[in-house]
Simulated scan of single mutants.
Amino acid sequence: MTEPAPQTVISALQDSELVKPPRSQWVDVWDQFKHHKGAVLGMGFLVFITLAVLIGPLIWTIDPQKLDIRNKDLRPIYTLLWDGDAKTAWNRPFGTDNLGRDGLANMMAGGQASMAVGWSAMLLSLIIGTTIGVVAGYFRKLDGILMRFTDLVLSLPILPLLLVAVTLFRQPLRAAFGPEQGMFILIVGVIGITSWMQTARIVRGEVLALKEREFILAARSIGTTPGKIIRRHLLPNIVSPIMVSATLGLATAIITESALSFLGVGFPSDFPTWGKMLSDSVPRMEEFPERVLLPGLAISLTVLSVNYMGDGLRDALDPRIRGR
Rank of each mutant, 00 (worst) to 15 (best):
I216V: 15
I321G: 02
I216H: 06
P6Q: 07
I191T: 09
F267E: 02
G42V: 01
L294V: 15
E212Q: 13
R324Q: 12
V306I: 15
L304E: 02
E212S: 13
E287G: 09
L248F: 11
G312K: 02
P295V: 03
Y138N: 05
M107G: 03
S269N: 13
V303L: 01
V19D: 10
L210R: 10
P179C: 00
S120F: 05
L126I: 13
V239W: 11
P76M: 04
M183P: 09
V135P: 07
W26A: 11
Q181F: 13
K20T: 14
A253G: 06
L156V: 14
P272F: 08
K211E: 08
P22S: 08
I254Y: 03
R92W: 15
D318H: 04
T194V: 07
Q7R: 13
D15I: 11
R75I: 05
S11C: 01
L67V: 15
V306R: 00
M197T: 14
A86D: 12
Q181S: 13
P226F: 08
A52Y: 05
G144H: 13
G38R: 00
T273G: 04
F215L: 02
K228V: 15
L173S: 04
R314S: 03
L173G: 03
A109K: 09
D85I: 08
V164Y: 10
L317G: 01
L54C: 10
V135L: 12
G266D: 04
H35S: 05
L278Y: 07
E287T: 15
L250T: 09
R204G: 04
K34S: 08
Y308P: 01
A105D: 08
G223W: 09
G249Y: 02
R204W: 09
M115F: 12
N98T: 14
G144V: 13
L161Q: 08
W119R: 00
R324N: 12
F262R: 03
D15Q: 14
G100L: 10
A113Q: 13
I202W: 03
E3M: 14
L51K: 08
P57F: 09
Q25E: 15
R92E: 10
S300H: 02
L301H: 03
I254W: 04
Q181V: 15
H36N: 15
P289W: 10
M43I: 09
M115E: 02
L263E: 01
G266F: 06
T96K: 10
R101K: 11
T79M: 12
V29Q: 02
G182F: 07
R322A: 06
G129L: 10
D83V: 05
R314F: 04
P6E: 06
K34Y: 06
N106V: 10
I254A: 03
V265H: 06
G110D: 02
A52Q: 05
D68C: 02
G144Q: 13
A5I: 13
L46C: 11
L81W: 15
S279P: 09
T2A: 14
V306T: 12
R204P: 06
V292R: 04
F262N: 03
L146S: 05
G84E: 07
L250A: 11
